[in-house]
């Protein structure tokens, strides 16, 4: 039978009705998720916008709907621009990002390269190496808190390596505390890079690598001309994920140092947490949060549009 005959014989489900039914069903299926997203975006955004224009605080003795009584216009936003502590928190967050992400990327890539072909014990080593990323970050924070105690095992290892007693108080020194926090981040998230990059690496066809070898390409040339171009998207994804997560960094760091000593390891999230729970200046926090959301939204939409355009061009 040709398709024309089929549709003549079976008029029960005309294509238009079918599509209509599908669209309605699709709408119903996506509805719960849509509602949840609306619930977490629309109300909070409106509330946040509202109180960000006021001096409201949970301590102000007013219910938040009456926050308009403390209206102060755009004063909070003006303060954001001049908030030195916010900008240094942003700077520290950026510092963690520019140190940790490249280190994690390079270590992950190096490990992935070692795992690209099979060798005895590969599965066991693989399972061990991906463990850190599955440890609850707060627990990881506690692990490193213990490790970096002045009488802890890090100093013990350093002592035996250097042949002299080392009693550095890692978490009480502004510079070393930052370093310790970065070490913890690198420990926990290099496995993620390793995992993603390895998945990309094994996707590079072995025959193409052999073909390149037979055409006289050196290992570096093969990496540059075959491996990298084929892994470009994967590398971008891996880096993007880590940059985003680094921007949010909180759990591990907060358990290890609480943002201290002083404000030495205070990142954006820690800063917001502190002024939320200690200073309780919620109107001002709302203004900071909105600015961050706005900047990130613009960046995100821009990045996705750009990626979509590149994909179309390819």
């Amino acid at each position: 039978m040709t398709s024309a005959e089929i549709s003549k014989d079976m008029p029960a489900r005309p294509a238009a009705r079918e599509a209509d039914e599908g669209a309605r069903l699709g709408l119903r299926l996506t509805l719960p998720a849509q509602l949840l997203v609306l619930f977490i975006s629309v109300f909070p955004l409106l509330m946040q916008l509202y109180i960000s224009l006021t001096d409201w605080s949970p301590l102000s003795g007013l219910g938040w709907p009456r926050a308009y009584e403390l209206w102060n216009g755009f004063a909070n936003y003006v303060d954001v621009a001049g908030d030195g502590r916010l900008w240094s928190a942003l700077g520290r967050t950026a510092l963690v990002m520019v140190v940790c992400v490249p280190v994690e990327f390079l270590l992950g890539l190096a490990l992935a390269t070692l795992f690209a072909d099979s060798f005895p014990g590969k599965r066991v080593f693989y399972s061990i190496l991906i463990m850190p990323m599955m440890v609850v970050p707060a627990v990881a924070g506690y692990m490193f808190y213990m490790l970096f105690q002045s009488g802890g095992p890090v100093n013990d290892i350093l002592s035996s390596l250097l042949g002299m007693p080392v009693t550095v108080a890692w978490l009480s020194d502004p510079m070393l505390a930052m370093l310790a926090v970065m070490v913890a981040d690198i420990w926990q998230w290099t496995p993620l890079m390793f995992l993603i990059l390895l998945a990309g690496l094994v996707g590079v066809p072995e025959d193409q690598m052999k073909a390149a070898t037979l055409l006289g390409a050196s290992p570096w040339q093969k990496f540059r001309t075959i491996v990298l171009p084929r892994m470009k998207t994967i590398i971008i994804i891996a880096l993007a994920i880590r940059v985003i997560e680094c921007f949010k960094i909180f759990d591990t760091l907060f358990i290890m140092t609480g943002g201290g000593p002083g404000v030495a390891t205070e990142t954006i999230s820690v800063y917001i947490y502190k002024i939320t729970t200690q200073d309780l200046i919620w109107g001002y926090v709302a203004a900071i949060a909105l600015v961050i959301l706005l900047v990130l939204s613009v960046a995100c939409v821009w990045a996705i549009k750009r990626m979509a355009r590149k994909e179309r061009a390819a």
Binding site: D207, Q208, A211, L214, L215, G216, I226
Partner: peptide
Amino acid sequence: VGFVFQNYAIFTHMTVRQNLDYGLRM
């Protein structure tokens, strides 16, 4: 030696020209 693979192992992310002159470029 020139080697032609079972699946040809063409560098699919390159043009035909880039495939042909790969060895010489390297």
